[in-house]
Write a protein that binds this DNA or RNA. Structure first.
Lengths: 263, 263
DNA sequence: TAGTGGTCTAGACCACCGC
DNA sequence: CGGTGGTCTAGACCACTAT
């Protein structure tokens, strides 16, 4: 006479695939329970164990089966809804979204710099010095004109061919940027390990024709279409910590990302 | 001997500006309490009543003062953290982010089509008919090649001058798209009022040189740099509902948005 | 050490959906 | 109508930060 009664395995397509999944929760772990659950659900979705359209089963049953409270289960589910992997509908249930929708995780070039820098693509530092801030840079970084800033110019290659020219400015007192580490580690990783916690960035993506210098550097013809990106990044205190001005070879690069619709 | 004791008004800069704010909560309203609170907090931030750097006061006090439970207050605060308006730090408190960080709400061209279509910018429909799907369109929309799709070609102007050429394909059975309504209402609004609930979109932004036809249409020179955007939009069931292929005059248009860093 | 947000529990009632 | 997620409560203990 258990308080929970599992209905006789409904084999209708797209139903309760969760029943047979073995979830393991470690209450001694420092990882929050809702996060452990979310990770395992996400893995099950990624591996196809939880197929698109599958219902997750109602939250009450789920919490009883897992030995968790309902709010904790909801928190796990909510995090996957926020990632776009699950959809909740009142009166219906929670189901896995169809696969086409969730292939590229999201984000744009900030992610690119943040994670994949110095990997498959190689980056060569062309310039790395401290100079007085120009009016434009000073305004973007919120420092006084003439204040010392670090200027960085880098050429990024993929498969041996140029992809982008990156110019970045940072307040000089913020951190040291030895060229060797920059080439192997990537700018954002270095900022993070220097204790700088990023909060957000404002970006503007545009296009224009290549100048003669840009063309030479990127192995394009003068006047070729280039993709441009300007960005100011802020840390959690709201202080601007980086101002970037990048140009990409449009013939070899595009910004790919996913948008979730705010409901 | 009240269980909560309010420390003597600290007047240090950036502290407890919330004390004097009058929040009104209506328990008979269909609007959730956490949402009412979030809206009023957001308004206070937007109007500057809650200045950047201001601490919000701890969640326990706040919930007592408002007559709400702590989880409800947390839910309100969390929604503003997700929007990038507030920052929480354990052991410190919750504070308003600095203003530069939060100027443009976020989103890119999906928002543009979703909200601002048919407003200041005017849109002229150049083509609106039903045709058999090409291989490319069929693949993008997940329909059979040759299935009936609606093709839309529009020219968008701002301040009387061309800004973008928009080409969209939709599964024909999805909805009716009378040209007159399209020009006044915008595509996404029409989809929404037809009961189509959007979930997400995959986008790719690139650049290339203008063809002769595009140049003529957009009042640019042949070979001028254009910004391009390709997008597939999905509804909550994961079904593709729109495939768009847009070109923008780079000299008069850029994608502007804010990224929040996933922590 | 005191104060903050982070996590978690065990209930409750309601609104919406599909049958 | 029964089942689902949506909202809300009133506690509890823990981890981190600053002083």
């Amino acid at each position: 006479m258990s308080p929970v009664h599992r209905s006789p395995q409904r084999t209708a397509p797209g139903d309760r695939a969760l029943d047979s999944l073995g979830f393991t929760l470690d209450r001694t772990s420092p990882v929050p329970l809702y996060h452990q659950l979310a990770q395992q659900l996400e893995a099950a979705i990624t591996h196809g164990t939880l197929a698109p359209g599958n219902l997750l089963g109602n939250e009450i049953d789920l919490s009883v089966r897992l030995g968790l409270s309902r709010p904790t289960v909801r928190q796990a589910i909510q995090s996957l809804v926020d990632k776009g992997l699950l959809v909740r509908r009142r009166g219906v249930g929670t189901q896995v979204v169809h696969s086409k929708v969730r292939r590229p995780l999201e984000l744009s070039s900030l992610y690119d710099d943040l994670e994949s820098a110095g990997q498959d693509p190689t980056t060569r530092v062309l310039r790395n010095e401290r100079i007085p801030a120009s009016a434009e840079v000073a305004a973007a970084l919120g420092v006084a004109e003439g204040a010392e800033v670090t200027v960085l110019e880098r050429l990024r290659r993929a498969h041996g061919r140029p992809v982008a020219f990156l110019c970045n400015h940072l307040p000089a007192p913020l951190l040291e940027l030895p060229t060797e580490r920059l080439e192997s580690t990537g700018l954002y990783r270095m900022m993070r390990s220097a204790g700088i916690v990023l909060h957000s960035a404002r970006q503007s993506i545009g296009a224009r024709a290549a100048t003669a210098e840009e063309a030479a550097l990127l192995e394009e013809k003068e006047g070729a279409a280039l993709l441009t990106m300007r960005r100011t990044a802020y840390d959690v205190t709201g202080r601007p910590v980086e101002y970037g001005s990048h140009v990409y070879r449009a013939s070899r690069y595009a910004f790919d990302f996913q948008l979730l619709v705010r409901t």
